[in-house]
Design a protein around this nucleic acid. Structure first.
Length: 284
DNA sequence: CACGAGACCTGTTCGC
DNA sequence: TGCGAACAGGTCTCGT
């Protein structure tokens, strides 16, 4: 479910609290319940419990789509994948359906990892770099420039959409924000990375950062029954809008499949780059 | 290096 | 109404 803006929002709420739940920072972990074993990537369930009990949650953060809980000694890393979510709730409640891991905290609270589809994973480690080291740059990092993006694109011959979804190329984009960024920058999802001009690259760089920042400002996007609190779905330009008019030109938005992912675009604003592909083939 | 298919899972929505 | 197919915000692995 969650992409960079949703994970950023969750990290913020865990740190600051909101109307629905108090912050978890400062709370000590008293006990754990692992309800679905495969949720725990590492270490073993026994080692997890003995290591984490007694540690305090010092801070929360994010890297790509990974949620980071800095504990007294270790880092708890959580990836929500498609359907994961976190709840801070009274420790006395019976576990809700789909709760996979519960951390009982002091003050009568617990932090519950709820994950309908069971794709989510949790790591407890003293060396978070080991889990995170394959990730590409953070798109909102001030050090990540349009020039950096251009250089990375020129080194690749893949289609734009699957490349932008590749977390080792750039960390944090998922299906929603990729479609939105491609539409905003007027680039076709099947355009080949190393054919982009500097001007097109700059548009893409701007668009990626713009949609991610807008997503964060809206506390992320909520779709169907998954996730809560976000409102960015009301600003979607193309995602899940097949058949509806493009906000720029009114042309009907089209849904295609790219790399087995539903992909939404305006065929007028994002024309298929047949010319660029032809040149590449002749040169290659 | 790049691509596609299949796996991992459960729940909702779509089409007939 | 009922029922199977398609689809869902992600990633990993394997074969070509």
């Amino acid at each position: 479910m969650p992409e960079l803006p949703e994970v950023e929002t969750i990290a913020f709420i865990l740190r600051q609290g909101n109307d629905d739940q108090p912050p978890v920072t400062g709370r000590q972990i008293l006990d754990t319940q692992l309800l679905w074993e495969r949720t725990l990537a590492t270490p073993s369930p026994a080692e997890f419990k003995s290591s984490i009990v007694g540690q305090r949650i010092e801070d929360t953060g994010r890297r790509g789509k990974y949620l980071l809980l800095q504990l007294s000694a270790d880092t708890l890393i959580i990836h929500l994948r498609m359907s994961g979510d976190l709840f801070v709730e009274p420790a006395a409640l019976p576990p809700a359906p789909h709760h996979r891991l519960i951390l009982n905290l002091d003050s009568g609270l617990r932090l519950a990892f709820n994950d309908t589809r069971k794709f989510g994973r949790v790591w407890l480690t003293s060396n978070p770099e080991k889990v995170l080291n394959g990730l590409g740059p953070e798109p909102l990092d001030p050090a990540f420039t349009a020039g950096d993006l251009h250089q990375r694109l020129q080194a690749r011959r893949r289609q734009l959409k699957p490349l932008l979804l590749d977390q080792s190329f750039l960390a944090g984009l998922g299906n929603i924000y990729t479609d939105e960024a491609l539409n905003l920058s007027r680039l076709h999802p099947l355009a080949i990375a190393n054919t982009l001009t500097e001007e097109q690259t700059r548009r893409l760089w701007n668009a990626i950062r713009q949609v991610l920042r807008a997503g964060i400002r809206s506390n992320g996007a909520s779709i169907d029954w998954v996730y809560r609190g976000g409102s960015y779905q009301h600003q979607f330009r193309v995602y899940k809008r097949a058949g509806e008019p493009c906000p720029e030109c009114g042309t009907k938005i089209v849904r295609i499949v790219v790399g087995q992912r539903g992909t939404h675009l305006c065929p007028n604003c994002q024309p298929f780059p047949s010319l660029a592909r032809g040149i590449t083939l002749q040169e290659g």
